[in-house]
Each structure stands twice: as C-alpha cells, then as structure tokens.
Amino acid sequence: MNEKSQDVDIRHIANLARLNLNDGEISRYETDINAILSYAEQLSKVDLSDVSPTAHAASITNVIRSDEERGSMTRSELLDNAPDVLDDELIKVPVVIRHGSEGPA
C-alpha cells in the first residue's frame, strides 16, 4: 500500500459525512477503502496533463427555464412528512446557532 492511501482518516471522513461508526466499522472500512484506493492508484500513472475533465455524460449547455411560477405544495403536505413540527407551521429541530450569519456560510 502506498503512502497516499495510508493517509485515509476514516474518523475524519465519517465526521464530514455525518456517519457514526463503531471501532469495528472503522477498521473494516479503513481496510476496504485503502484497498480500493490502492487499486485506484493506477490513475496516477496515466499522463493526463493535456486531458480536460468530463463532468457530464451529455455535452449540452445553457439548459435554463423562464422565470414562471409552477406552484408549490401545501404546508400540510410538507409537514406530514416532517419528523417534528412546531405550531403546525415550522419544521422543528434542536436549537442551533449557525456558525455564521443567517444565510450561507
């Protein structure tokens, strides 16, 4: 196994992905993922310096829509699926203060 794949810190990755893992799972996933990544090390041997990346299977551009309303669903439709609800109006979660302004980080 080479250096790069040994770097895998499953605990850190699991935290990023918001997955709780027990010790057994951590060591199992560590083994699996290291094996997969060391197989994928084959990619580092290909000269890709002049190759552009492909993000999509189709090569179309500018797929946009006009600014017209399409309607919304009812609040009850939304809240019926919600695990916890406040005053029949809001979706309830434990209190959290965003690390940042009211809005995107």
Binding site: D87, L90, V95, I97, R98
Partner: peptide, 13 residues
C-alpha cells in the same frame, strides 16, 4: 430561515 427558541429552532423554508 431559522427562528431560534430556548430549547429548539423552527425552520421556514
């Protein structure tokens, strides 16, 4: 938009 209360928050989407 989140509204924060003492024990919980409510979210308006």
């Amino acid at each position: 938009k989140s509204t924060h209360f003492k024990q919980y928050s409510g979210i308006d989407f």
